[in-house]
């Protein structure tokens, strides 16, 4: 039961927010996170086209051997990605709350430029209260 990290990806595939929490995954440079976020954005689009039956959403949960990524796609195209341990069952509820915090502390912030990296103290504190304090 651990939450390793949170990403927010804008609708163009750019990483606008990234934060690490518990240890368990390696720390990458911000450039590498940007590349991974872009890759995920592309994969997400392809997975919805591979459906064997009817129309499908994009990938919602991606599982590896020791961790999983839960993806919440908002109606506006912003993706919230939570990296957690496999046993974590609350990932989607946490993401829903992250989305609320994003709506309150980022979208209502008059100094925030849409689609640009999130630099908002209010969002940071809301996330810290929700998930715990990060190391970064």
């Amino acid at each position: 039961m651990a939450i390793f990290g949170l990403w927010v990806i804008n609708k163009a595939g750019g990483l606008v927010y990234q934060r690490n929490f518990a240890d368990g995954l390696v720390q990458l440079t911000s450039n590498e996170y940007l590349v991974l976020a872009g890759t995920l954005h592309g994969i997400h689009a392809i997975t919805s086209r591979l459906s064997p039956t009817g129309t499908s959403s994009g990938a919602q949960v991606i599982e590896a051997e020791t961790f999983k990524m839960t993806i919440l796609l908002s109606p506006t195209g912003t993706k919230f990605v939570l990296l957690t341990s496999l046993a974590e069952t609350s990932a989607s509820t946490v993401l829903q709350k992250v989305y609320e915090a994003y709506a309150d502390a980022v979208m209502k912030n008059p100094f925030h430029t849409p689609e640009m990296p999130i630099r908002s103290e209010g969002f940071d504190t809301r996330i810290a209260a929700l998930i715990g304090t990060g190391h970064t």
């Binding site: 997975t47 459906s51 039956t53 009817g54 499908s56 959403s57 991606i62 599982e63 590896a64 051997e65």
Partner: peptide, 13 residues
Amino acid sequence: ESFVSYRTSTYKL
């Protein structure tokens, strides 16, 4: 570590 599976609303790979 290898990737194991992913899930969408209609299928799982």
